[in-house]
Every structure is written in structure tokens, then in C-alpha cells.
Design a protein around this nucleic acid. Sequence first.
DNA 1: ATAATAAATGACGTAACGTCAGTTTCAAGC
DNA 2: GCTTGAAACTGACGTTACGTCATTTATTAT
Lengths: 258, 258
Amino acid sequence: MIHINEVAKQTHITVRTLRYYDQIGLLECSSKTEGGHRLYSDEDLQKLQQIQFYKSMGYRLQEIQEMLTDPNWNWTTGLVNQLTYIQEEQARLKEMELSLRTLLNGIAVEAGNQEQAVQKLIKLSMQDKKRPMHFREKMFSDTELKLWTKLPNMNGEHPESMEWIALIGLIIKYHASEVPSSPNVQNVIRRMLEKQAEEFPLEDEFIDKLWELRKSPSASEQLGMYPIEPEVLEYLERAYEIYISNTAEGDFRQGGEA
Amino acid sequence: MIHINEVAKQTHITVRTLRYYDQIGLLECSSKTEGGHRLYSDEDLQKLQQIQFYKSMGYRLQEIQEMLTDPNWNWTTGLVNQLTYIQEEQARLKEMELSLRTLLNGIAVEAGNQEQAVQKLIKLSMQDKKRPMHFREKMFSDTELKLWTKLPNMNGEHPESMEWIALIGLIIKYHASEVPSSPNVQNVIRRMLEKQAEEFPLEDEFIDKLWELRKSPSASEQLGMYPIEPEVLEYLERAYEIYISNTAEGDFRQGGEA
DNA sequence: ATAATAAATGACGTAACGTCAGTTTCAAGC
DNA sequence: GCTTGAAACTGACGTTACGTCATTTATTAT
């Protein structure tokens, strides 16, 4: 029989918490002094450990109470339910993480103008909900639509998307200060082409089609692409052409058999 | 200028929420009728969209209020902080998921006796905190200690652990009803050896040493291994010997150069 | 003008405690 | 036995972002 403060020290649970558990009937101490001070037995401590254990799995106190009292508690079902719940929460957090990364990259893309990035992304996410997808289906064949799902996007379903965005961000950054032929810009182009070869091997025709659509602001918007200013796109195209002409009968179109 | 109910319909935000936002000063409607009914302007709606946008990234209303009002708000820092927070939450949930999976497997291992599994796991997690690690270091060389970190454990740092646990669970299940030479059991042994060859190629000596320790309950406990009844271990050993003798000058010890 | 509908305010509830404030009990020394 | 400082007790309010009543007032259609 030990006092509440001793329990707190041993278990690293606060006195307040112990009193609260007593109050809601989750862990009533097995006896009290005549003056009303709580006294905890070894069994109480063991029960407390169990409570901690279940708490570490994200259960709420009410549920823990049921588990501990109901002899017919279905453990497997209960655990699987909790597991499902935890996984849903994880999915929610993942979406939040993606939104945050998207905005961060958006701000980078807009050269620090958050208002711009926020507005564009809000507009995009609203369109996402409304878009009837007909435009996409009209523009592409079935095989192309399958490729479409693998494209990087600002909603960032895949980490790869973020790499693409970072590359675009670099282009926009250099756009303000460097000529398209500068080594920095050419380096980005090279990395873009490498990524393209990795992720879309042997799909040059599809990529060319995409590029044409990308250059049309209205088509881009209808397709739900993140809006990029036309002058940036032109800058990118020039840099690309310079890269191609420099590598000429090049040694880079080989990657993609994996 | 539209009424509150219209806003609710358009934005899928409840009337209660709009009134609450007004109350805490997050979104005060720009005008009211003489009778006191709220009227929202297009600007109000835009602000509301922004609020929704930030909420989707897990920000709290107070923080959103600061973002919207403070012109010196540091966006990049704020976003990175939130990202960190979200990632910590994800880590917490991952631990919960692992605990749940561990208990589920523990219950499987204990043939449905949850009390047993819970007790064992609580004991294990308590030992985990207290164990001074000296025993491990005494028993193994430096290279072996590196291998140790790759071992499967019931805390399940890697998904691989769960596979091992499932296999052990099968062994314990069959232990009650089948002889070690049965096809089911031999199948599990084969999968265990395959996994071993994948994860610990060319480390037979280390595995043998581990097996010896595993067979001693006290050594297992000191090393923080999930307790398995001695008779199950003997059963497993017999099944292993039968498997080895059947595959004789076998065709399975080759896997592991990857 | 009246009735039906919609909007307003206010209050309580949620989960799991933290943090006072004010009062009572315990344990030890004299 | 008495005093005293430490510890324990019991409320009560605060936290987050609303949901859910209950009651009253405004608007709108007929």
C-alpha cells in the first residue's frame, strides 16, 4: 500500500492523472486512509500498467475501461478496428504533409510570394473537386490516360512529384537572373531529362503532347496543372533546345530499359 | 452579400462553424442586417477559403488567425515547423500501429490468450527501459552487435519483424496439433530459412549462437527477446532437423549473394 | 397580418488532463 | 499532546473546435 505521490514517482504518471482515473472509475484505489488519502496496492499498479500499455496504442480511456471490465471483449476485432483507425489518421496526416510540402514548393516556385502560391493552390484544389474529367478523356487515349496517372502533380501523390517541383522551382529562380545557357540551368535540364527517362521511358510522343498542352494556359488549367507563367515556359523551352543542340548526337537517350 | 445559410451550402461549412469563427474573430462577416442577421461578401468567402486551406494542413484556428493578420508572418519557418509537427505526429501513430501489430501477433502467438500476450509484452517493454545493455555487449562481438540491430523483434521496427512473428505464430499454432514432420510445419521452416538467408546471408555462426541463447529462457529474457515456451522451441528444433535431413546435400544454402 | 421559416444567442457537452485555490490530513519533532 | 511543514484532498475553470439543444427574434411569403 503506497501513497499517490509514490505511485506517481514510480510510474511517471502525474498525481492529477491518478486522481482523474479514480474520478472516472477507470482505476479506483483499493483502499483509503481514514482521512481519505488514496492508497494503492500492487494490483492497482499492475492495472495501471495495463492502462498505460493500451494508451500507448492510442485507445481512449473509455475504451480501455471497457476492455478491462468486459470479459466478453473481442480482442482481435477491437485491435483490428483500432489499427484501422490509426491507419486512417496516418493517411490524414500524410495528406497534410503533402499539402505543406506543396505549399512550400509553391512558395519557392513563386519566388517567395506566398499570396500568389496560396491563391493558385486554392484555385487548383477547387478545380480538382469540380473538374468532370471529360477534358482529360477527350484529349488522351486510354494508354495515355494510364501514363497520366503517373505524372508528377502539385498535390504530390508520390515523392517524385516533389523532385519535379523542386526542379521547376530552380528554373523559375534562375529565370530571373541567368541566361538559359548557363551551367546551372543546363544542369537542371539534364536532371529533368534523366528523371523523364527514368519515369517515362520510351514515351517521348506523350511527353511532346503534354508539353504542347502545358504551353497553353487554358489547356493547362482545364487539365488541373499548376499554373506557370508563359515566359517561364518559354525560358524552359529555350534552355531545353540549347541542351539538345549541345549534346547533339547525344549519349543520353539510352537510359530506360530498366 | 449572402446569408449564412447560403454560405454554408456553397462551402460545406456548417452554420455553427461560421458563427463560431465570427465569435472568435477569425472571420467576422463584413455587414449585418438591421435585425442582426449576418451578411457575407465575396471577400469574406475568399478569406473563408484560405481558412479552409490552412486547416487542411493541420493548423489550429489561432495559428490561422495569426497568419492572416500578421503581415510579418514568416511563411517558410511556419510551414517547416508545421511540417515537423505533422511528422512527429506521424511517428507517434507509427509507434501505435507497431504496438497494435505486436499485440495482435502476440495474441496469435499465445493462441488467443490475450492476457498472456499483454502480460508478456508489458513485461518486455518495462525491461526494455531498464535493461542496461551490458548483457548484450558481454555476449557479442562488435560485428555481431551490428547484426543484432537487424534482428526481428516484437517491437517491430521493421515490417520484416512482423513476418517473423507470423511464422513463429504458425509454429506455435501447429505445435498443438501437428507433428514436426507435417507439410505445414515443414513449409514454415522452409520460409524461415529463406528469410534467414535473405536477411542474414553468410552469418550461420551468429544464427547458431542466437539459437543457443534463445533456448535458454533466462538468457532470452536478459536479451529482451519475446518469451517462448521451451517446449515450442524444442518442437521448432525438431522440425528444423527433419527439414535439414530431408533436403540433405541440399539446394537451399545458396541464396544470399544479393 | 399572420404563419412558416430562418437566424440569433446562450448554455452545456466533448477528452484528458493542467493549473490554480482553499481546506484537511499526515508524519515528525518537541 | 501539540505544532508545523509537507502532502493530499476537493472543487472549479481552461483547453479545441465545434455539435446539439432550447429559446427568442427577424425575415419572408401569402
